[in-house]
């Protein structure tokens, strides 16, 4: 049996919207992350990726559904148990500058979780070791965040995140704000930490090339729901949901392709999550939409003969495959 460290079932999170009822930021999401592996969560901005990440880390309460981490139901725990569990789950966010206390030195930032959780032992030695682990020059320990480059700041954020040896780390667009060459360094670091420490990642990103490089499995999210999920290789080689294909077609490649015709289906932007009507939420942008799509909402279902799930009426059809 596969050992799933993180299991989310039927997660729902609504936010109130001024004068217009509520918005289903997360609208019935199931996810499973196998221990020591990376699940990537991809989709356009506003589709609910960060909210999902916060629900998994118990930084927010879901309106429905549950999250189990290492067998413990996260949102059912009492305060003390939750605090203990939190040690094992850490976030790394996009903008390390926002996430780091500007008035603390690097040394104090990395030491803080050790102190807060009374990790004990020789804290300064542990901090030095952590900085070495993320390949940060020890001379930077006395610097403040504004004195560091973006890549160095993200290394500090990662050092702090792994200080308590977490089992599960949610990386929310951790390299989106960095230069490509620095992105590659940080991604290599995240992978090395996974190899050495068996960390399980939820890797939130809109960069499909990075996702392909990092993740064993990929979940594609659209307007609060998962629309396709499966092993990375399979999903990239043969995407079954038209939205996955749209994202893949739009991803830039560092080589000259035929520019005409431009990726056909990129017309339209994601509508607000407020306006989910009947039928498939992707239908207004979908080049394959039929009458059925506009009346019947396709459930996420396993595709026979694959390890994949997709929420599309035509996920198996050659018509979909040829688009």
């Amino acid at each position: 049996m596969t050992d799933h460290l993180v299991v989310a079932e039927g997660l729902v999170k609504h936010y109130p919207v001024r004068g217009r009822g509520t918005l289903a930021a997360v609208d019935g999401v199931d996810l499973r992350v196998e221990r020591g592996t990376t699940l990537a969560l991809v989709g356009e901005s506003g589709c609910g990726k960060s909210t999902t990440g916060r629900l998994l880390l118990a930084l927010e309460r879901p309106d429905a559904g549950r999250v189990t981490v290492a067998g413990q139901e996260v949102h059912a725990l009492g305060r003390r148990d939750l605090r203990a569990l939190r040690r094992t789950m850490q976030p790394v966010f996009q903008d390390p500058y926002d996430a780091l206390n500007a008035r603390m030195t690097v040394e104090r930032i990395v030491a803080e979780p050790l102190r807060v959780h009374h990790a004990g032992g020789d804290v300064p030695a542990r901090v030095r070791e952590l900085l070495a682990t993320v390949s940060l020059d020890p001379a930077l320990a006395s610097r403040y965040p504004h004195e560091l480059s973006g890549g160095q700041r993200q290394r500090v954020a990662i050092a702090r995140a792994i200080a308590l040896d977490p089992a599960f780390v949610v990386c929310d667009e951790p390299v989106s704000a960095l230069d490509v060459s620095v992105q590659a360094q940080v991604v290599n670091l995240l992978r090395r930490l996974q190899d050495e420490r068996g960390i399980t990642y939820l890797f939130i990103s809109h960069d499909l090339a990075l996702v392909r490089h990092l993740a064993q499995r990929v979940a594609v999210m659209y307007l609060g729901r998962i629309v396709e999920e499966g092993p990375a290789g399979e999903l990239f080689a043969d995407p079954r949901h038209p939205y996955t294909r749209l994202l893949l077609a739009a991803a830039p490649r560092p080589r000259v392709r035929d520019r005409d015709p431009a990726p056909v289906a990129v017309a339209g932007e994601t509508p607000g999550a407020l306006s989910r009507g009947r039928g498939c939420a992707f239908a207004p942008r979908c080049p394959l939409a039929t009458g059925l799509c506009r009346t019947d909402d396709p459930p996420l279902r396993a595709l026979p003969g694959t390890e994949r799930k997709a929420a599309c009426h035509y996920a198996e059809s050659s018509r979909a495959g040829a688009a």
Partner: peptide, 12 residues
């Protein structure tokens, strides 16, 4: 070097 460091979704 810059080009090599850019991952390509078609060529992992």
């Amino acid at each position: 070097a810059l080009l090599r460091s850019v991952p390509d979704p078609d060529r992992p």
